[in-house]
Every structure is written in structure tokens, then in C-alpha cells.
Design a binder for these strands. Structure first.
Lengths: 204, 204
DNA sequence: ACTAAGATAGTAGCAAATTACTTATCTGGT
DNA sequence: ACCAGATAAGTAATTTGCTACTATCTTAGT
């Protein structure tokens, strides 16, 4: 039992990573706003006060979480897009990569589309806004490329289509949030994407 | 100055209505979760404790708010749909009626799509779920009618299209939430709806 | 005069942050 | 290899501040 009482001490860097990890888990379970530092501490067998050895404020934790998400998500999307031979395929691959990412980390959309967005003047809001508008710009950019290759009509409004793209993801997330877990998130995603695709494709 | 100190006393019914009204306003400004009963009281020149003369718990206030929203929204949507001559037009009219409703009451989507959804086992969650899934069912129903009249392809998945419809609204809301107010919510809505429409319309 | 809305002044509980103290782990000099 | 001292992670207890809710008293309106 001595072994059990031996507390492993982690470096601040490692501990920060763990805090980020459990925060995401907890946010998935009970919603971002109701995760307390006590919850975090409990989840990693630590005392509540210890959290503040590694982050000055709780807000800083969420900032770190969002930055972690941004990094991971962008990596996944870039990788998906890089395997495409044309802009339309890139959009499709990105979409399904995003859906897969969400399936694996159900908390992510909850973070990005949560009330965190509404805390005015916060760094968090700026971060989230940056991610979403950057994403939108990326999709719109690909659509412009598609236009140049006449894969979509020249009069298509790229920005509007990008907004619809984002909304499509939000809709799917809400769908799966209301009607049981990821029941058929992938399947639903495929069907919806076909409609989207048909909506923007070149009229034959 | 005597006039100023004269406090008007409202009946509990009237006061409840006012509480609902200011709650929606405040939720639009600072987010549902951070509205306190003190905020509400301040907004109507009342003491915090007085709130509880009219609602037993704070949750009851949000329940009343959601029911108010449901009633109003449904009325707006039904009225819009009733003016249509065919199912597709009904969907279009409903969509723009919804967008107009949101423009007038920016807090509404914030309530429906907020973290309230994540409070498991609550009456609130059930209410919100009911509204959204009912809405979705309505759209899907109209699409089925459209199918019967060959206005949309028979192989269209109505439910998926309905999810996309909801997502479209969410996307627009997020868009206007991030990039300044209702700058061009109406205009954006029109452009996006065209894409959606083309996506579900019968291939010619 | 009676009823019920409102005021006043609380209470209990929770959550973020801080303080003083403890001890594991790392470091450099012998 | 070793050990003394510095460093920093962890603990425990507490503070501070807020928030939902309540008990008691007051007074407007009928």
C-alpha cells in the first residue's frame, strides 16, 4: 500500500497536458460551463488548489484547450485536404475528416459552438472566431479554385456555400446530440453531403 | 421626485411576463448561463428576492421562456406556411419567416442552441428537443409532400434535408453572431437558401 | 381591512483563487 | 556516487465573492 500512497509528481508541462485532456473529457460529459476546477482535480487525483500551480486562471485552461483543439483539428483537415486531386475532392475529404474527428472527440463541437463564444471581449471568443472564420475562408477558397476549373458554377457565392458547409456540421452535431450518440453520424453525414454537393455542383 | 419613488405594483401574471421578457433580453446580451436573478431584478427595478414571488425556481423561469418562444415561433411558422400554395413554397416561406423572427429576437437561437441542451434529465432539455425535432419533422413532412408532387426527386432523404435545413439556420446565426450583428442576415439567408433549394430540387 | 407584491436582510452552498506549509525531484560540487 | 540545498509540485485550509433561495416585515391597491 505504500506504493499507492506514493504520489507521482509531474512536471508543469505534463500536468498542463493532463489538465487539458481531462477538461475536454469533462466538457463532453457535462457541458463546458459546468466543469469546475474541483471536477478537474478529482478526475486526476489532485487537490483543487494544485490546478493553479499550472494555470493562473480557469479561463487560461479553456484558452489552452481551444488552442489544442485548433492545432489538432487543423492538422486533421490539412492532412485530409492534401490527399485530394482537385478542390471539390478536398472539400469532401475535409468534411468527412471533420466528422470522423468529431466522432472521436465529441466534446470538440461543444466547445467551439458553445456559450464560450458569447463571452464578449475575451481571448476565448477571439480564438474561436478565428478558428471558425479561418475554416470558412478555407472552404470558400477551395470553392473559388473549383470555380476556376469550372467544377462549380461561376455565379456560386463561395462564402454562402461555406456558411452552409459549417451549418451542415452544426446541424449534424445537434442531430446526434439530441437523438442518441453517434448512432449514424457517419451515415447521416454522407447523405447530407450529397445534398450539399448537388446544391453547389455545376448545372449540367 | 415623489413620483419617482412610487413603485408600480404588477400582478403576478404581468410580472411573470416581464421577467420572461427581460430574461430573453439579458440572454441575448450576455448568454443564457450567465444571467442571474439579480440581473433580472436590476433590469426591471426590482429586488432580487421578489423574483421568487413569481417563480419558484430559476429553472422555472427558463422553462417559461422556452414555452413562450415555442408558442411565438410556432405561430410565426404556421402563419408563414399557411400562405403557401405548394410544399416547396411553404418551406421557403417558413425559412424566411424564421430568419425574420431571429432578426427581431436575436436571443432565440441562443436559447435553443445553447448549453441548456446539455443539462441532462431536465425538463428544459425535453422542451428544446421537442421544439427542434418537431420542427425537423415538419420540414421533412413538407418534403414528403413535395415528393408526392414530384417537386423533388423521389430518392431524396427528407430527414437529411431537414437536418441540413436546421443546420442552415444555425450556420447563419453563428455567422451573424461572429461577424457583427444582423448586417446582412436576410441577404445571406437568401443566397444560402438558393443553394439548399438547388440541392434538393428535381434534377432537370 | 385584507391580500399579495415588494423590500430588507439574511442563509447556505459553491467555486475560483490564495496562502502557508510539506516534500518529491532535480542540481552541482566534492 | 553521494549528499546538501534549491526548486517547484502538491496539500490543506482559508478567503473572497457570488448566487439561488428564504423568512420576515412593509405597504400599495382593491
Amino acid at each position: 500500500m505504500n506504493q499507492k500512497t506514493v504520489k507521482k509528481r509531474l512536471s508543469s508541462e505534463e500536468r498542463q497536458s493532463e489538465i487539458i485532456r481531462v477538461s475536454i473529457e469533462l466538457a463532453a460529459e457535462k457541458g463546458v460551463d459546468s466543469v469546475t476546477t474541483q471536477d478537474m482535480a478529482d478526475a486526476m487525483n489532485l487537490t483543487q488548489g494544485s490546478i493553479f500551480r499550472h494555470f493562473a486562471t480557469k479561463d487560461d485552461i479553456w484558452v489552452a484547450v481551444i488552442m489544442w483543439v485548433r492545432e489538432r483539428l487543423m492538422k486533421v483537415l490539412d492532412k485530409a485536404a492534401s490527399g485530394a486531386s482537385d478542390p471539390m475532392q478536398a472539400i469532401e475529404l475535409m468534411f468527412f475528416a471533420h466528422i470522423a474527428f468529431i466522432s472521436k472527440h465529441p466534446a470538440i463541437p461543444r466547445l467551439l459552438f458553445s456559450e464560450l463564444l458569447h463571452k464578449k471581449n475575451s481571448k476565448l471568443r477571439q480564438l474561436i472566431e478565428g478558428i471558425i472564420s479561418g475554416y470558412e475562408a478555407k472552404v470558400a477558397g477551395l470553392l473559388e479554385q473549383a470555380k476556376a476549373r469550372s467544377l462549380v458554377p461561376a455565379d456560386l457565392d463561395s462564402r454562402s456555400a461555406a456558411v452552409l458547409y459549417i451549418g451542415m456540421i452544426q446541424g449534424l452535431v445537434m442531430q446526434s446530440s439530441i437523438f442518441g450518440g453517434k448512432r449514424a453520424l457517419q451515415r447521416e453525414a454522407e447523405k447530407i453531403f450529397q445534398i450539399f454537393l448537388h446544391g453547389i455542383k455545376k448545372r449540367s
